[in-house]
Nucleic acid binder design. Structure first.
Length: 427
RNA sequence: GGAGAGGUGGCGGAGUGGUCGAUCGCGCUCGACUUGAAAUCGAGUGUACCGAGAGGUACCGUGGGUUCGAAUCCCACCCUCUCCGCCA
């Protein structure tokens, strides 16, 4: 969430930055007005409370000095205390309501795009930063999509998954399941080597966690909710990992904190009917290795670049052609100030498809989740900066491997780095 | 799910209606002593919000309530621990 003081002090700049996201945009004016009202109320109420506290102390002192607790003097003081209390009781709910309303509005406002984020309307104005691995693109004439390859090899099974669940689910069979596991282990091993501490977190989380990372309140329809409990299936391990430190104050010596996790991810994909209906690209349940960093604000830009490199390293090790895209302001996710997408080459459709999204949230999530750090020797606390990225989405990686490593005879070569994990060279 | 115990500042731990934002110990910071360190001694040391400032308000698991006044009394909820039950 945005800093209320920043909105208060620089409403025009904040509004201008929000407008970069979209023209119909977000209006901060209501917040500015409510904030003004709330502060006036707060001043008024706290002055009354101060007076009331004084009266309370006076009564206590008089009784200790021998005044009759039932005497006229004390009764008069109590009466005036009661009057003030009645006034406070009137103001309090108004103030609480205003605060709640402000908070509600703040939770709906997306992050301000970073100054360096390219300005644009939608994904067509995203900027390609670099490309890697053109030399690995297959020259073969006969390219089949990954779901055909997978079904023919008997390692992907969509029909029965639909039976036991619904559409957009898959069974991985035999070598398919083994390949999935190999990818998970390879990715985790690589990221652990890069300095991330592995976590196996809950994949069910409460509402506060989803608010902390920004999925709630705006995107409730994107996640699966458990009926009887305040628990949701995570759409990404970002939620679990970032919320590990919710409402905590860490010391600056603990920073930077790097975590990686393999988890299944669950997404309702509401509103994407008809999109990517075949294959592994858009499922309700998919596996992912996620990277999360909590860092000191002055390092977050450099940390962002190195996070992207950690994700890229996986694609490079797998020799999968990809490109790095910097999202423009109009395509930026809700909480991100700056975001790079990694897109892997899928030869069957001759397109690059997103396989990792690496975002810098600055203090946006830290404010929502109240994650702070204390600098030794300094008074007070500061919000950390949070970053995350996929390292990588497993299902899409499998799709890319099946397509990029397919052989004319219908089999699939196993990428060299996976061979020790999979203990075979061909699928 | 049942029974019991408990949740206080970075940690430990006091505090059962007023002088408590909270004794004390540890830790930490600064200073003194010391060639240096340890030990010792002295001072300081929570967070958030409002206010130009002086200052004020709020916070003792969370939310309500009683009272002029609540860490302390009442109610509900959450969490932790022990025992029992169930269970991958």
């Amino acid at each position: 969430m945005l800093n209320l003081k920043l909105i208060r002090d620089n409403p025009t700049q904040v509004q201008e930055l929000l407008n970069r996201r979209s023209a119909d945009g977000y209006d901060i004016q209501p917040i500015v007005e409510l904030d003004l009202q709330q502060r006036q109320l707060e001043t008024q109420r706290s002055q009354l409370s101060a007076r009331s506290n004084e009266i309370g102390k006076e009564i206590g002192q008089k009784i200790r000095n021998g005044s009759d607790p039932k005497g006229e003097e004390i009764l008069a003081l109590r009466e005036s205390g009661n009057q003030i209390k009645a006034q406070v009781a009137q103001l309090e709910p108004q103030e609480r309501e205003l605060k709640a309303k402000i908070n509600e509005l703040l939770l709906q406002i997306p992050n301000l795009p970073h100054e360096s984020t390219p300005i644009g309307q939608d994904e067509t104005e995203n900027v390609e930063v670099r490309r890697w691995g053109d030399e690995y693109k297959t020259q073969s004439e006969k390219i089949r999509p990954h779901w055909e390859i997978g079904e023919q090899l008997g390692i992907l099974e969509f029909k029965r998954a639909v039976k036991i669940a619904q559409s957009r689910f898959v069974n991985l069979i035999g070598a398919g399941a083994a390949l999935e596991r190999a990818l998970i282990n390879f990715m985790l091993d690589s990221q652990i080597k890069a300095g991330y501490t592995e976590v196996m977190p809950p994949v069910l989380v409460n509402s506060d966690s989803l608010i902390g990372t920004g999925q709630l309140p705006k995107f409730a329809e994107e996640s699966f909710k458990c009926g009887d409990d305040d628990l949701w299936l995570i759409p990404t391990a970002e939620v679990s990992l970032t919320n590990l430190y919710r409402s905590e104050v860490v010391t600056d010596s603990q920073l930077p904190i790097y975590h990686c996790a393999y988890t299944p991810c669950f997404r309702r994909e509401a509103g994407s009917y008809g999109k990517d209906t075949r294959g592994l690209i858009r499922l309700h349940q998919f596996n992912k290795v996620e990277l999360v960093k909590l860092v000191s604000p002055d390092t977050s830009e450099a940390e962002h670049e190195s996070l992207v490199q950690n994700a890229e390293a996986i694609l490079q090790a797998l020799k999968l052609p990809y490109r790095v895209i910097e999202l423009c302001t109009g395509d930026l996710g809700f909480g991100a100030a700056k975001c790079y997408d990694l897109e892997v080459w899928l030869p069957s459709s001759s397109t690059y498809r997103e396989i990792s999204s690496c975002s810098n949230f600055l203090d946006f999530q830290a404010r929502r989740a109240n994650i702070r750090f204390k600098e030794t020797g300094k008074k007070g606390t500061q919000y950390v900066h949070t970053l995350n990225g996929s390292g990588l989405a497993i299902g899409r990686t499998m799709a890319a491997i099946l397509e990029n490593y397919q052989l004319p005879n219908g089999t699939v070569e196993v990428p060299e780095v996976l061979q020790p994990y999979l203990k075979r060279e061909v699928l």
